[in-house]
Design a protein around this nucleic acid. Structure first.
Lengths: 254, 254
DNA sequence: CCACTTCGGTCGACAATGTCGACCGTCTGT
DNA sequence: ACAGACGGTCGACATTGTCGACCGAAGTGG
């Protein structure tokens, strides 16, 4: 049966639709957005609701995502092997570098943040675990682009968004940058996504040298950079953390 | 069509199964655990994998939850109205009380933590957003039990687990406690789930006075309690935060 | 205050759809 | 080298989800 199960694919599309639009959606909106008959959409929504993946506002009748997704998302993190092994190294890196640390994996056309260590001694920050970062303008993303053919393939899907004046939006530029990244073994992104923010990232690979994710530090450009370049000492810290995590992953099995 | 969609329910069951077992599960394990034919289970797993809800370890062939769940779970939090309005109040409460703050909603047979503010000036803590707490032995849970008939109904489903010597495991005791909670307007739980931990919770309701969630503070029993009872000043802080959030929710709509 | 529209939801007929169990190649451990 | 278990595929069958018409309620504009 080499075909996806129709009702499941449709249910997934509905959930993604609900996740995308910021506000709640009505039954008819869902049905027309996906080109389904109302009855069909209702059947799927009813089941999703019953399972806790979708909730319905009892008075407006509109639908939104449900709590079970949060619970399952947490379970995903609990089982995540890369994340589990990286926890302590990420902590160390944050302390040594004095900056925010992110751990990300390739997911669809972006990098999914699976771990986030706050910058030590900093004021209030919001946890970004579960959020996505663009591939072509962040240290995490560029590392994956350079080493993971799948990630590079995702880039052909659509035009590249420019976030700041320093964002690379031409595929040729990106490929050149990737070659450089592979050569020196690390990536940086200086104000390519957010003004004032610079980041340095390095690859994490499993024992078979497959790319499985990336670590990066991220912080104010004034602290991370010096004379327009990222500080070599921070690069060394990130690379050593990435190596440590990779080694840990390799040892973990058998 | 008042019946759930079979394939969807089964897919949900598979995801819950994967979330429950700590380790990855093989196709046959999944199939037998749910009483499905291997072919059927495979079809569902294949679709879930394609949609990103499930991932497969390429060399062992075992399945685990997928990254898309984390992303959707995050989207759930983004849309969550109660959480959005409570963010700032929870922060204030944590600062005023000097303790950890949790915000929870009823989900299945427990309380789902939708927000978590670390105790100020404390050392490393793990974020518990997305995790579940029992209904009958935590301040969050007991508040919901006292005010939400649905929560109370869930209690009839199975026997109550005893975590410490102070856990209430008899339905009669629980109901008496709930009456007390309703009378005085707040709940506490002193070493009923974890030794050494005490918590104080209060109800959050929407503008129509429906219970929608609960806030609590939680901390070392030595700090939260005095002479065997929770400190009245902390109770006042929690209740005032709960009122503030409820008011905020009420104002939001119209 | 009443048509008129649009909403969420239900119903029943139809056939497309997912399900089942046998089967295949591979790997593992004996 | 064998036996068993693994993940995965295939095709027939009928169960199952789908569709479009229909319903009452709520909202809207005249």
């Amino acid at each position: 049966m080499p075909g996806p199960i129709q009702s499941l694919s449709r249910a997934a599309a509905i959930m993604r639709l609900l996740a995308g639009g910021e506000r709640r959606l009505g039954l008819s909106e869902v049905a027309t957005a996906l080109g389904l008959a109302k009855g069909t959409a209702h059947g799927i929504l009813r089941t999703l609701q019953q399972e806790g993946f979708v909730e319905q506002d009892p008075e407006s009748g509109k639908y939104q995502l449900g709590a079970e997704l949060l619970r399952l998302g947490q379970s995903y993190l609990d089982v995540h092997e890369l994340r589990a092994r990286a926890l302590v190294w990420a902590d160390d890196l944050a302390r040594a570098a004095g900056e925010t640390v992110y751990l990300g994996v390739l997911h669809q056309q972006g990098v999914l943040v699976v771990h986030h260590v706050f910058r030590p001694d900093d004021t209030r920050q919001v946890l970004e675990v579960g959020s996505m970062q663009p591939l072509h303008s962040t240290a995490l993303g560029k590392v994956l682009l350079a080493y993971d053919p799948v990630a590079r393939g995702e880039l052909n899907e659509g035009p590249l968004e420019g976030y700041t004046s320093r964002t690379l939006t031409e595929l040729g530029d990106i490929d050149a940058e990737c070659a450089l990244i592979r050569e020196r073994g690390w990536a940086d992104a200086i104000e390519e996504t957010w003004e004032g923010v610079a980041s340095i990232g390095a690859l994490i690979q499993d024992r078979r040298r497959n790319p499985v994710g990336a670590v990066c530090i991220s912080g104010a450009v004034e602290r991370v950079c010096e004379d327009g370049f990222v500080r070599p000492s921070l690069v060394a810290s990130v690379r050593s953390a990435a190596r440590a995590i990779s080694r840990d992953l390799g040892a973990g099995r058998f």
